[in-house]
């Protein structure tokens, strides 16, 4: 099944060039070549290098981060419905973004920082709530995550209600999208996302073991409690980084790991790399639809939900037979 990896890398390269060549402005593939040759005018160059390029890179990072976090969570909770947001991270990020917008200091970078800090904080609180004397039972953690998420959704709704004029800004942020992409954002999330993805990738063997049940993982010599903590930390970092730069993009974290599971099977040693690559290929493509389908831009979270939910139902129906 490793055979799938080179074609997926190629697919990523093709999508990268495709997305670089398409957009609402008339700048196309020929201009990309011109930019590479250094012959393009400054306007074309800035559309490609300062606007489209960081946007594509961020969407690739976010796509692979959400897919990887979703896959890790599904293995950890041994539950196909787990996604990157089970620990309440996304609701925490919304609260952070809403607060910054409400108090009127909402620059792109400030919103990103607030969302990042609040989501990590939420993950930490959920983790502490889920911790017991005998370790970290995943069900307690799951329930703590659900409780925290609904509490913070309430807080977000309250903030939206109080926001008045700024209401649209908050709602638009929550819907998720890449229109605020810039190189600063790329530099901010590059290390946490790539670092966490590499960590999960290197631990795919242990994810196989934990899939068998925690006692079975322990019985082959894995220090399960410590491993769970590290995987939760990596997933939280992936999710918080993604949410901070792009708002809440749903279904990617659930659908991509499942689709890959159907194709390559359950073994995480192939599942994780293909999920990473497929997530990276999928997200810029959906974002391309978001920025070119209509005159103005559609939030990408809407498109992933519109595409993702029916696909997910299809997977569920298929799994039943």
């Amino acid at each position: 099944m490793y055979k799938l990896i080179p074609p997926l890398i190629l697919l990523n390269a093709l999508i990268f060039i495709l997305c670089l060549s398409l957009g609402p402005s008339s700048v196309g593939f020929y201009d990309v070549i011109e930019v590479i040759n250094g012959k393009a005018d400054t306007n074309t160059e800035s559309i490609i290098l300062a606007y489209r390029m960081p946007r594509i890179i961020i969407s690739m990072l976010v796509g692979s981060a959400l897919a990887t976090a979703g896959c890790a969570m599904q293995a950890l909770f041994r539950n196909p419905l787990a996604d990157p947001y089970v620990l309440g991270v996304s609701s925490g990020a919304s609260v952070g973004a809403a607060i910054v917008i409400l108090i009127g200091i909402a620059t792109t970078l400030n919103t990103m920082l607030a969302a990042f800090v609040f989501s990590l904080l939420t993950a930490f609180i959920v983790y502490k709530l889920g911790e017991t004397k005998i370790g970290l039972p995943v069900y307690t953690l799951l329930l703590a995550g659900v409780a925290m998420a609904s509490f913070l959704s309430g807080v977000t709704s309250l903030l939206i209600y109080l926001a008045g004029k700024e209401m649209h800004q908050i709602v638009f942020w929550i819907m998720g999208g890449f229109w605020t992409a810039q190189w600063e954002k790329v530099w901010f999330v590059f290390v946490p996302i790539v670092g966490s993805i590499v960590y999960v990738l290197l631990n795919s063997w242990n994810l196989n073991a934990i899939l068998m049940g925690e006692e079975h993982a322990l019985s082959v010599g894995i220090d399960v409690e410590s491993f769970k903590k590290k995987i939760i930390a990596a997933s939280s970092l992936l999710t918080s980084s993604s949410v901070a730069v792009s708002g809440i993009i749903g279904f990617v974290g659930i659908v991509i790991p499942h689709a890959m599971r159907l194709i390559v099977g359950e073994n995480h040693r192939t599942l994780i790399p293909t999920t990473i690559l497929f997530g990276a290929a999928f997200m810029p493509l959906v974002d391309l639809i978001a920025r070119t389908a209509t005159e103005s831009e559609i939030p990408v979270g809407i498109i992933t939900a519109l595409l993702g939910a029916p696909f997910f139902i299809y997977l569920l129906r298929r799994a039943k037979v």
Binding site: N208, G213, S219, E266
Partner: peptide, 20 residues
């Protein structure tokens, strides 16, 4: 352990876990 695992892993992958 007593708990019976449920997994879609292939048989060989399950046995290989013994090499962990």
């Amino acid at each position: 352990p007593q708990e019976n695992p449920e997994t879609n892993l292939k048989v060989i992958d399950v046995v290989l876990l013994g090499r962990t």
